[in-house]
Computed example of a mutant assay.
Amino acid sequence: MKKILVTGANGQLGSELQELSVLFQHQYQFLFTDRADFPLEQEKQMADFFAIHQPDFCINCAAYTAVDRAETEREQAMLINGWAVGKIARLCDEYSCRLIHISTDYVFDGNSSVPLAEAAPVNPVNYYGLSKLKGEEQALAFSPSSIIIRTSWVYSSYGNNFVKTMIRLMSERPQIKVVNDQIGAPTYAADLAKAILQIIEFLDTPGGASRPGGIYHYCNSGKISWFDFAQAICQKIHATCEVLPIPSSDYPTPAKRPAFSLMATEKIQRDFGVPVYPWEDSLDTCLLKMQQFLA
C-alpha cells in the first residue's frame, strides 16, 4: 500500500485531510506529522523520517503563516516557507516521492484586474509572500515533478481563520469594520483537501504518473472582497451586528496585502478533473459543520 506523508497535519488543511483520510484507508497509508515528528528546521530528522517510511507522496501543508509577524521574523519565515521546502524536495527526489506543495496568492502584487493565471508575473508585496515564492522555486528546482498549488483566503471548521473570527466578533460587538478594497476568493480547506487527494489518485495511475510538475491555482469560484465575505457570514448566521466597509488605509497592518489576488482555476480543473465549488455553497457547508460541532 502506498504511503502519503502529510506535514503540518494539525493545521486547517492538515486537519481536513485527516478527516477525509478515513475514506481512503483502503488505498493509502497516511503518515500525519507535526513539528515533533517532522521538524522542518532539522534536516537530519526529516532525512531519517524519509529513510524509515519512504513515502510515495508528500503533501506539504506545513508553513509559517503569521503574515504580519513575518515582516520582523524574516529568518524564521524564510527557513520554514523557503529553505525547508527545498530540503523536502531534495528528499522527495531522492526517494521518488511526488511532492504536492501548498503556496499562496500572496506571491502576486495585487495590480491585476483580471483573474491571475499560473504564468502571471509574480511580485510579492510582503515578506510572507516572498518566503512562499522562494518555497515554490526550491520545490521545482530540486524536485521538478512537484505539484505547487497556490490557494487563497483559507478557512475551515478547524484552526483560526477569518470565518471563525467574524463569528466571534459578530457575537461580541454591535458593529465591525472590514476592508472592501482587497479582492479575491475564499477557499474552504475541505474542498482543497478533496482536490489534493483526487490529484494523488490521478498521479497514482500509469497515465497520471507521467504528468509533469508545475504550478496550479485552487480556490472557490466567485469574486469578492473581505467585506463581501464578512457580510455573507453575518447574513447566514443571522447576526444583528452591523458590518461596515472601510478602505485598507483605515486598517493599516505591518504587512501590505495585495489589492487583487483573484486566481484563475481552469488549469487544475482541466488537468486533474478537480471540481471548483462556488464560495457561497462552500461557506454554507462549513457553517453547517460548525453548528454540528456546537450542538
Rank of each mutant, 00 (worst) to 15 (best):
M1D: 05
V6Q: 03
V6I: 03
G8W: 06
G8N: 03
G8Q: 06
N10I: 07
L13I: 10
L13A: 01
E16F: 02
Q18K: 11
E19D: 11
E19A: 03
S21H: 14
V22G: 10
H26S: 15
H26I: 09
Q29F: 04
F30R: 14
F32T: 09
T33F: 01
D37M: 10
D37T: 09
D37V: 09
L40W: 08
M46Y: 08
M46K: 08
A51D: 15
I52D: 12
I52H: 14
H53M: 04
Q54K: 09
Q54A: 14
F57S: 14
N60R: 04
Y64L: 00
Y64K: 10
V67N: 14
D68Y: 11
D68P: 07
E73P: 10
Q76N: 13
A77S: 14
M78Q: 08
I80G: 08
I80M: 00
I80E: 06
W83A: 00
A84C: 01
G86V: 03
G86P: 06
G86K: 00
Y95C: 05
S96P: 07
R98P: 10
I102D: 02
I102L: 12
I102G: 01
I102K: 05
S103M: 05
S103T: 00
D105P: 06
P115H: 13
A117M: 04
E118V: 14
A119D: 13
A120C: 12
N126P: 08
N126S: 08
N126E: 11
Y127D: 04
K132D: 02
G135A: 15
E136I: 02
Q138H: 02
L140N: 07
P144V: 00
I147K: 05
I148R: 03
T151H: 04
S152M: 07
V154E: 10
Y158R: 06
N160A: 06
V163D: 02
T165W: 07
M166K: 09
R168V: 10
L169Q: 13
S171R: 10
R173V: 02
P174D: 06
Q175G: 02
I176E: 08
K177E: 14
N180Q: 04
I183G: 01
A185D: 00
A193F: 02
A193N: 13
I196G: 01
L197W: 01
I200W: 05
E201L: 07
L203F: 00
P212S: 10
Y218P: 14
N220F: 03
S221N: 05
S221W: 04
S225Q: 09
S225E: 03
Q231L: 15
Q231D: 09
C234K: 15
C234I: 12
C234Q: 09
I237S: 07
H238V: 13
A239G: 01
T240G: 13
V243A: 02
L244F: 12
P247Q: 14
S248P: 05
S248G: 02
S249P: 07
S249H: 13
D250S: 14
D250K: 06
Y251Q: 10
Y251L: 13
P252G: 07
P254M: 07
R257H: 02
R257G: 03
P258D: 04
F260H: 07
F260T: 11
L262N: 06
L262V: 05
A264E: 15
A264C: 06
K267I: 11
I268D: 05
Q269D: 12
Q269M: 11
D271P: 01
V276Y: 11
Y277V: 12
P278I: 03
L283P: 12
L294G: 15
A295S: 11
